[in-house]
């Protein structure tokens, strides 16, 4: 092989590397989704919101999810503190697109639709916003493998995910995902706003254990790195694959007051 031929081979190899990394990352995420997919999940969440000045606020909600990732339907009902009791949130996933979302406010006796570009709003005073409440759907992102890195003492795949333009608007330019190599379970996520080099927020998933045969993180902490505040959710009464009543994930049910579900 002459020098010119060798150069072509090197260029072809270099060009193939990102594709291979993207394929690897996609395979990992698809495999992760296949392993951890559940028909449904429900839990009681105890939330602690700690502001930069150390002021602590407690909240509590019950959450029901049916489906997984892009086809997930989610209903959340707050039951503490009194100020937000009865506030409810419904998100109906649309595969490959942004979900439809509504918030029910008992004080107004009506639901409010969340516009796509409103999703930067804080979710009921927490460090999560409405986009953060969406299930991660790998099909809506261009992904690439960035190597491996240790998180929480576990060796992880580090994957970069950039929102696809045709998959609905996103607040974020990219997300960095840490996926545990041993169980392909996401344990950390850094999100970057558009045009920013430093992550805006960090989601840390810990206390990972098996419940009813499914891996789950029983503690989630979202830190707003700019505001210096953080919200921790402790998951209690976890249950998977329970049949969900027909009509639970509907606007009709979102508007129901006085019930527990």
């Amino acid at each position: 092989m002459n020098r010119q031929g060798a150069g072509v081979v090197v260029l072809a190899f270099l060009a193939a590397v990102p594709t291979a990394r993207a394929e690897d990352a996609r395979k990992l995420l698809v495999e992760s989704e296949a392993r951890h997919r559940t028909k449904s999940q429900q839990y009681a969440g105890d939330l602690t919101v700690v502001a930069k000045d150390g002021k602590v606020r407690k909240k509590a909600w019950r959450s029901w999810r049916e489906g997984y990732a892009g086809d997930a339907k989610l209903l959340i009902r707050f039951h503490a503190p009194p100020e937000v009791k009865g506030v409810s949130f419904l998100s109906l996933g649309r595969p490959g697109k942004g979900p439809d979302q509504w918030l029910y406010l008992p004080s107004m006796k009506r639901e409010r639709r969340i516009a796509t570009q409103d999703r930067d709003a804080s979710f009921v005073g927490t460090d999560f916003n409405y986009e953060d409440m969406e299930e991660f759907d790998q099909s809506k992102f261009a992904v690439s493998l960035k190597g491996d890195e240790t998180a929480d003492g576990q060796v992880c795949w580090l994957i970069e995910a950039r929102p696809e333009e045709n998959a609905g608007k996103s607040l974020y330019e990219k997300k960095l995902l840490w996926l545990r190599k041993d169980i392909l379970f996401g344990v950390r996520q850094d999100v970057f706003r558009k045009g920013e080099k430093e992550p805006a927020k960090r989601l840390h998933l810990s206390d990972v254990q098996q419940v009813e045969g499914h891996w789950v993180a029983k503690a989630l902490e979202m830190t707003d790195l700019k505001k210096g505040s953080r919200t921790t959710i402790l998951l209690q009464e976890l249950a998977f694959d329970r049949p969900q009543p027909a009509g639970r994930f509907t606007l009709q049910n979102l508007n129901r007051e006085g019930g527990e579900d």
């Binding site: 409010r112 516009a115 409103d118 930067d120 709003a121 804080s122 009921v124």
Partner: peptide, 9 residues
């Protein structure tokens, strides 16, 4: 016309 600004409307 309705528009959310932060955690408000």
């Amino acid at each position: 016309l309705e528009r959310a600004f932060g955690d408000g409307t």
